[in-house]
């Protein structure tokens, strides 16, 4: 796995990890994260901005509900940066930065913590 520097950073744990009604679906959400990461990186490197934006949008809506507020906010910043880049129709460092911080946050997501 190519998690790079993120491997060494602190793991991020769901705010609801200890909530009995949430435990099972949080685990499910976390288990899906590697797939999302893979998809994101692939879409980014192939220049598929639309796909990146869709994933960011979905994460923005869902992550907070699963107790990963920080991820949700980062996803919102990425979505907004991509929207700005679209309007400017130029590749932006802004969007790249937002993408990288989103991806490195996602890579720190863990179930147990």
């Amino acid at each position: 796995m190519d998690n790079g520097a993120a491997m060494t950073a602190d793991p991020i744990r769901s705010r609801f990890a200890d909530d009995p009604e949430m435990r099972e679906i949080v685990a499910f959400f976390v288990a899906e994260v590697p797939n999302r990461l893979h998809e994101l990186r692939q879409a980014w490197s192939s220049g598929d901005r639309v796909r990146v934006r869709t994933i960011a949008h979905q994460m923005k809506g869902a992550a907070g509900g699963y107790g990963f507020g920080e991820i949700g906010e980062s996803a919102a910043r990425l979505e907004a940066a991509l929207a700005r880049a679209d309007r400017a129709s130029t590749p932006s460092n802004d969007a790249r930065g937002a993408f990288e911080s989103f991806v490195s946050l996602l890579a720190r997501v863990t179930e147990a913590g």
């Binding site: 099972e24 679906i25 499910f28 959400f29 979905q58 869902a62 509900g65």
Partner: peptide, 13 residues
């Protein structure tokens, strides 16, 4: 978004 469905089913159970 499937995660939203899953979340709502739990939160409104």
């Amino acid at each position: 978004s499937e995660p939203i469905h899953r979340l709502l089913r739990v939160r409104l159970q």
